[in-house]
Design a protein around this nucleic acid. Structure first.
Lengths: 195, 195
DNA sequence: GTCTATAGAAAGATAGAC
DNA sequence: GTCTATCTTTCTATAGAC
């Protein structure tokens, strides 16, 4: 019979994070117990502490990984030339990326207040990097006379809120395909910042 | 010396709700204990149960009151004539009303998952009424050829998300007055739904 | 109407057997 | 690497004195 003992941390570790992500998104960080997470994974509560030093770090790691994935994916995205093409790339990328991982998105927006002060600062730094990417597009377009947004910071905030809002109502298998949704939002975004 | 005993429920009751609102918004419903609320009010934990049957009902009452206030205020709002005027009235009303009570808004959006099934349905019903008001404006404007929003439901969701997003970054005494913010958002909203 | 006291359950985290 | 057992704390909610 094959050896069953030995290190499973490369299997169990990701399972712990997946279960925590699902449960935190569904019920909220504070409402979920370590025992619940352990139950989903199929281990005892005590065993979780082999994969995370504590509950707070488990939350932080989920959020950090999500934000780092987001930045890396945007970095690797084909963005095209000129402010208009780049704005379209951003709009479609943002919706697509966020619809792909609703739990992580939900946690990243809702559980900021449950982070320790230092962890909060780290996540906010990553978020700012992402927001800066959009603001930069708007600023260049404004300078080039392509856009009509006197306040690029406000326009950036407004666009991000609008786009992320898709996650609050989108359901798999609804009446609209993701591609159609991206198209409709791109149309509104384009007009909203038009000159 | 004046009588100090007797009914204080007309004073303490609102104080309980105010403290709960502040704490729930700051730390989240699940993370706040009845002892913390009692501490803020200046009573013992047991005394809270004179003002609410349980913690869940305390949350529900906060959310219900907020949504009913919102609907009543919009009902009393001077809306003007025609889709464009009414959309402007809605945009300015929404931002103004939401910036006036950030804690209640935060709770109403973040704590839905902590409501019991029946309480959730009640709050969602109230929210839908409010959303319908905006969708109706968009539908009439679309029909009249004033707007260019083929999917009024999506446009409604996009606008609400964009407008409510102001609450995530607005700080009292910032570089922009509320009136200027309303103006900038109205400009973006108007263009976003333009034909 | 508010207090103290407490019941009863559940939480996060650790120790030590295997 | 996972288990059982447990420490310690904290929670919601109730009972009964004043």
């Amino acid at each position: 019979m094959a050896r069953k003992t030995g290190s499973h941390s490369q299997i169990t570790g990701p399972k712990v994070r997946a279960a925590a992500s699902r449960l935190f998104a569904r019920h909220g960080f504070a409402a979920v117990s370590m025992r619940q997470i352990a139950g989903e994974v199929g281990v005892q509560a005590g065993a979780l502490y082999l994969y995370t030093p504590d509950k707070q770090t488990l939350l932080f790691d989920l959020m950090r990984e999500h934000m780092e994935d987001l930045l890396a994916a945007w970095g690797a995205q084909d963005k095209g030339e000129g402010p208009l093409a780049q704005l379209e790339a951003f709009v479609r990328f943002h919706i697509g990326f966020h619809l792909e991982r609703p739990d992580a998105v939900f946690i990243a927006y809702m559980e900021l207040r449950n982070l320790s002060e230092v962890n909060f600062a780290a996540i906010e730094g990553l978020r700012k990097q992402y927001e800066d990417a959009l603001e930069q597009i708007l600023r260049l377009g404004q300078k080039a006379g392509v856009f009509g947004v006197p306040d690029t910071k406000l326009a950036m905030m407004a666009l991000i809120a609008m786009l992320t809002g898709v996650n609050t109502w989108y359901r798999e298998g609804g009446r609209l395909s993701r591609d159609m949704i991206e198209g409709i939002y791109w149309d509104m975004a384009r007009k909203a910042v038009a000159g």
